[in-house]
Design a protein around this nucleic acid. Structure first.
Lengths: 203, 203
DNA sequence: GTCTATAGGCGGATAGAC
DNA sequence: GTCTATCCGCCTATAGAC
């Protein structure tokens, strides 16, 4: 928490860390204040209430997720290269912020309407990028390919779930943290091949 | 919350509901007491503290998950039938208790050591069942098949993630709840075919 | 075992000086 | 804008009667 930032920036950075780790209900205003090296009163001065502060942070996180995904999809090249890059970048991104998806999913589950409203405006960028890739698939492989819905969900499932399920998967696969990192790294190639191989999967 | 149960059973049922919905920190003892049609004092009489009550419930949920998975794996028949049944039963099970995986993953992330210790004793049943299916794969398809680790994680990812990501996926796929239910149902066949088709995927 | 009443403290929020 | 001091309600937990 570097001192040479505006107070508001420091608060947001601190709140981001604490909320991600403990969730809305688990976080304490005092803890956020400490992490930002200010006192509780300032939190209320800048963001009025805990709820408001949380909503600002949460909205930013959803944006971060969606824009990251959208940017990842905008890679250039052949269809194979696109998938390769997308899987690589997505796994890398989620690995860098491993608590982000669980945080979003969890708070989304607890407050569906709030989240849905916020995402609705963001999804078009993502859908459009994906559509282009999908059309490219159709040209290359013909019209009889995996439905877009399944394709989309498969990518996200295969990239994200292994990272958010780490504590459980570690135990099931008998791996320590280092070994699990290697495993996740190896999934980049595995998932890419799997996706390419299942373009013509029977519905 | 049927009245004709022991108090302890009613408390556990109520606590289960509330904790799953709101998490440890979001849940209120008063709320649990109300749901169980008793008063707060009884909660402490039976379970001493909120933390203890939570741990009992959480342990039960982890057990429920693992034993359900283990039982699902113990299906009989050809390899194809096994995969078919496993995917079908797993998606059905998670759909019936959609907040269970997110609850476990979330609390696991917040308290890794507690969870890991508890699971370590449970995992063997599951691993053994899966190993049998995998050996069957080897006999049928030869030794050059998808690594067990990836196979295992792929199954869970493809079955579980679409259900826990429902609020987000709904928006991305432009589906209402009914349409999303249909989609999840359609994944039973899709995921089965995908898994069967990728047994010989390049590592 | 079950209840009421209450302790005790934590945590979000505000007042008000500087 | 930033701080200290403080309010006040909520929430866990316990005491103690029945």
């Amino acid at each position: 928490m570097t001192k040479d930032q505006s107070t508001e920036a420091r608060i947001k950075e601190a709140a981001s860390t604490i909320f991600m780790k403990k969730g809305l209900t688990g976080a304490r205003m005092q803890e956020i204040a400490d992490a930002a090296s200010i006192n509780k009163a300032m939190l209320h001065y800048y963001f009025r209430s805990k709820q408001k502060l949380f909503e600002v942070i949460f909205a930013e996180k959803v944006d971060a997720l969606f824009t990251a995904f959208a940017r990842i999809f905008q890679s250039e090249g052949t269809f194979r290269e696109k998938i390769e890059q997308f899987v690589d970048l997505e796994i890398t991104f989620i690995s860098t912020f491993p608590s982000l998806p669980l945080f979003v999913l969890n708070e989304a589950a607890k407050n569906p309407s709030f989240v849905e409203d916020h995402m609705r405006s963001r999804k078009e960028i993502l859908k459009q990028s994906l559509k282009i890739t999908y059309d490219q698939m159709k040209i290359e492989f013909g019209p009889d390919i995996i439905p877009l819905d399944h394709f989309m969900i498969n990518i996200f499932s295969l990239c994200i779930y292994p990272i958010i399920a780490r504590p459980i998967a570690k135990v099931m696969l008998d791996k320590d943290d280092a070994a699990y990192d290697v495993f996740i790294e190896s999934r980049k190639k595995h998932v890419t091949e799997l996706l390419l191989q299942t373009i013509k999967v029977k519905s």
